[in-house]
């Protein structure tokens, strides 16, 4: 019994992260902000360092607070550079995260250089450890802390998306129309970015950066190839995420390798399948129709 709980919790947590990120990812890739997750994974460093200096401790809460603030700051700076500065979106992302990361490294180096507080050390979790980190026990069943946190995260994200669906949808697909009818594009942008910051930082803590960046982009992109109907895209991206977690986990077992790496690889496999075989947008479908 002990072992299927191992598998179960890891796959469940992977799926929860997958769903939270995939939903947000659908909006991100349609808004051409796919790389924001990768950017945030680098740019949180100064936030962690400053939080450590201010509080003197490296507790989870301090680190998360520092990281989330930087996540928000990152998206704010990117937006400023893009809208006010006239810098193209992808370049704005690159400029912002490289600068913030550099500042973080300098802060660490300048202060004795011996601090072991890079994000790989203090923020990024490892999905394999999730079953070991017990949060509470209900009816004799040990529930890992991350399962609780990630469930709450998923609930929060899906509620936000559900409640804000119209605003998010309109500002993603037809920002001019949205502006015309009084739906504030800027507000929705920042709401989405706040949700992304929160989701990424919390997920980093649970499963590490590799998986989060992958979950933000690949399932949504796969779903994008499979359907034209946006709600279906949201659903399909979740399904792809769950399937990847499931198959990736067993691949990792088989190879005795990194679970995060295996899940990312499986996401790639599913994407390739969709790329080739998607009924309307797939490579073969296009070749056959011309």
């Amino acid at each position: 019994m002990d072992f299927w709980f191992n598998d179960f919790w890891i796959i469940l947590c992977g799926s929860l992260v997958a769903m939270s990120c995939a939903i947000l990812g659908c909006f991100l890739i349609l808004r051409k902000m796919a790389m924001v997750g990768d950017a945030i994974s680098h740019s949180v460093l100064p936030g962690i360092v400053v939080a450590f200096f201010l509080s003197g401790s490296l507790s989870s809460w301090t680190v998360m607070l520092g990281a989330t603030s930087l996540g928000l700051l990152t998206t704010f700076i990117i937006e400023m550079l893009n809208k006010r500065g006239g810098v193209q979106a992808d370049a704005a992302i690159g400029l912002t995260f490289t600068f913030l990361f550099a500042v973080g490294v300098i802060l660490i180096a300048a202060n004795s250089g011996n601090l072991h507080i890079d994000q790989d050390c203090v923020l990024h979790g490892e999905i394999a450890y999730i079953p070991l980190d017990i949060g509470t026990t209900i009816a004799g069943i040990e529930i890992p802390r991350q399962a609780i946190i990630l469930s709450v995260l998923f609930f929060v994200i899906s509620t936000l998306v559900y409640l804000g669906y119209r605003g998010l949808f309109l500002t993603t697909f037809d920002p001019e129309y949205a502006d015309a009818i009084g739906v504030k594009t800027t507000t929705w942008h920042y709401l989405l970015m706040a949700a992304v910051s929160l989701a990424t930082v919390v997920s980093f803590e649970s499963v590490g950066a590799i998986l989060v960046v992958a979950f933000l982009i690949v399932p949504a992109a796969t779903a994008y190839l499979l359907t034209d109907h946006f709600p279906s895209m949201l659903l399909l991206s979740c399904v792809v995420g769950i399937l990847s977690s499931f198959t990736g986990y067993y691949l990792a077992v088989y190879l005795d390798g990194s679970i995060a790496g295996a899940i990312s690889t499986m996401m790639g496999v599913f994407f390739s399948l969709a790329f080739l075989f998607a009924p309307k947008h797939g490579y073969l479908a296009k070749r056959l129709s011309t």
Binding site: N6, L132, A252, D256, G257, S258
Partner: peptide, 15 residues
Amino acid sequence: PHYFKASQGDLKRIR
């Protein structure tokens, strides 16, 4: 050891 990335098998072994 500073950058050890655990595998699924490691988890099993610890358990």
